[in-house]
Design a protein around this nucleic acid. Structure first.
Lengths: 157, 157
DNA sequence: CGGAGGATTGCAAACCGTTTGCATCCTCAA
DNA sequence: TTGAGGATGCAAACGGTTTGCAATCCTCCG
């Protein structure tokens, strides 16, 4: 994983939510504030791109906890909207702290060689998605969209 | 899985490529024409939505072959562009015969309860995707996009 | 038409991310 | 401070997928 290209970094990703705000949210969700929970949130807070469970695990360092604990927590955190889950099609889920404006979301451009991730601007699919729902009588509609390609560093000569 | 709603069925999906055309393509790809291969293509030919490996396997009926054979064949067929792979996020890959205009593709609206699949019109992301590639210096760019929701039959009262 | 050579298959075992059961531990409200 | 229930660690199981290997099948060539 390489450093994100600053010029294309989406602004809201640079604003780190203080850990205390996060634990406040935990409390509001009636979740206990445990060491693994805090450590996981802290790791996510410090990264600007989605992390796999394994990446989170190694980032925990000496605050290490069981993999199953991370898996369980990601479900809980996702359920209460603190965290967003992404699937880049390589078989490992990735997680990112939700932006503070809880309902907005964005998509990613992923290098298929080095897994470098570019965070794109806020999603533009909402109107289209709503039309689609109306036209086909669907409710609770959502979507997934990711872009893949070779980043500048990975293009062979 | 329920029958697709005819009024929203995308036209090109109704045109079945004759099996002979498909085996011709196999030949051109220097692939041997084996019984499993033909049977798999024949199953795909008869379905208008993407199928999982398991669904293909059970559809094979008495032409049954090993799961590993299907997995291996899906890779080969995908590699030569005969088949397209989709990921609806439930952990099982799905496969669909490529439309005859080899480069076009479309997306899906998937019911999260009954897995009913609506095939959408041809993709509209190409320009956007190219812009994106240019702006970030990526090459070989592609994307994935699927919509999820509750279909009319699955909306609880 | 028959045989050689390489692709393809079946089978079983391995893989990998993820989930789960269970006993123990810890957090938090009373 | 204490009790109840949520949370954790550990190990086993799970589901989709991949892989090694020996046996088999398609094709091409003589």
């Amino acid at each position: 994983m390489s450093r994100p290209c600053p010029q294309h970094q989406h602004p809201h990703r640079l604003i780190q939510q203080p850990l205390s705000d996060l634990t406040d949210k935990l409390r509001r969700g009636e979740l206990k504030i445990t060491a693994p929970r805090q450590a996981i949130l802290d790791v996510l807070r410090k990264h600007s791109s989605p992390l796999t469970i394994k990446e989170i695990h190694t980032s925990l360092g000496k605050l290490d906890c069981d993999l199953a604990t991370i898996y369980r927590n990601m479900h809980t955190l996702e359920r209460m909207g603190l965290v967003r889950r992404y699937d880049f099609g390589d078989g490992a889920a990735r997680f990112e702290l939700s932006p503070e404006e809880g309902d907005s979301h964005h998509h990613h451009l992923v290098c298929t060689r080095c897994a470098r991730i570019v965070e794109l601007d806020d999603c533009f699919l909402n109107e289209f998605q709503d039309q689609l729902a109306r036209r086909h009588g669907f409710t609770q509609i959502s979507h997934r969209m990711e872009f893949f390609g070779l980043c500048p560093n990975c293009q062979a000569p």
